[in-house]
Simulated assay, not measured.
Amino acid sequence: MSIADLRKDYSRASLSENNVDADPIVQFSTWFDEALKAEIPEPNAMSVATVGADGRPSSRIVLLKQVDAGGFTWFTNYHSRKGRDIEEHPHVALLFHWVELERQVRIEGRIEQVTAAESDAYFFSRPLRSQLGAIASEQSSPVDKRETLEMQFTAAEQKYGAHPVRPAHWGGYRVIPEKIEFWQGRPSRLHDRIVYTRGADGAWSRQRLQP
């Protein structure tokens, strides 16, 4: 079978302007809870797309760690490629794809670093070896071989033991959404798309988009 012949008709659910919440964060939380109940593997996995200084896009999967009225929060190394991209262009796009539910959520917005206190709180909630890994890895930098990376980890373990210190270049980002789109797969490729847009006054409006 050729790749072009791979297709599936979607029929699990529908999405209407009449059955979504007026607040897209509440609507996201509803869908996220349904993804949890469906036991989707890592429902908090999301693609983060950034644009570098050269104008070229890049994307990768990270894990959402918090969502609230303030936005969508995740953590990483600020010196990584995505960190450097964000410093140049502080706007990103997020994408959740819950294939088992035939759903996507697309989020666009500006991004900012969370407070040091928030980064500390999450860093020290992580397993010890994950804390040490964040210290040891110079994320996105070239390394000659796996053994070098393991040596860096051992050095961090010997230096900090059971008491790591969060590196200043490791912490959280919060995406403050300006646009959130909910996509529900439907038969005949006539998918449901409801997009919310935040106005200058902070209020959300919503409309249906053609698939």
Rank of each mutant, 00 (worst) to 15 (best):
Q66K: 06
G133E: 05
T50M: 08
Y122D: 07
L149W: 06
R129H: 14
R103S: 14
V114E: 08
E150C: 05
D85W: 09
N44A: 15
H91Q: 15
Q158E: 10
I107V: 13
A116Q: 02
R56Q: 15
L64E: 11
L149I: 00
L94R: 07
K159L: 02
T50N: 10
L64Q: 12
V48G: 04
V165E: 14
S141T: 08
P167A: 03
A69T: 13
R106W: 02
L128F: 01
T154I: 11
V48P: 08
E108P: 11
R110M: 14
A136N: 07
E102I: 10
A93F: 13
N44G: 15
V175L: 15
V92K: 15
K82A: 03
D54H: 09
L95N: 08
E157L: 06
V105P: 08
R81W: 07
S141A: 13
H91E: 14
I135Q: 03
T148E: 05
M46C: 09
A49N: 12
I111Y: 11
F72I: 08
E138D: 12
H79F: 15
S80Y: 14
E157W: 02
W98K: 08
D85P: 07
V165F: 00
F124M: 05
L94S: 08
W170C: 00
F124A: 07
R126Y: 02
G171Q: 07
T115Y: 00
P164S: 08
A136G: 03
R174P: 10
A168E: 15
W74V: 09
V51G: 05
I111Q: 14
V62E: 06
Y173W: 04
N44K: 12
P43Q: 03
H91I: 12
S59Q: 13
K159C: 01
K145G: 10
K159T: 02
A121M: 01
G70A: 06
K65A: 04
V67E: 05
R110E: 14
F75P: 00
A69W: 05
L132Y: 06
S58I: 07
K65F: 02
R106M: 01
K65Q: 09
H91V: 14
P142E: 13
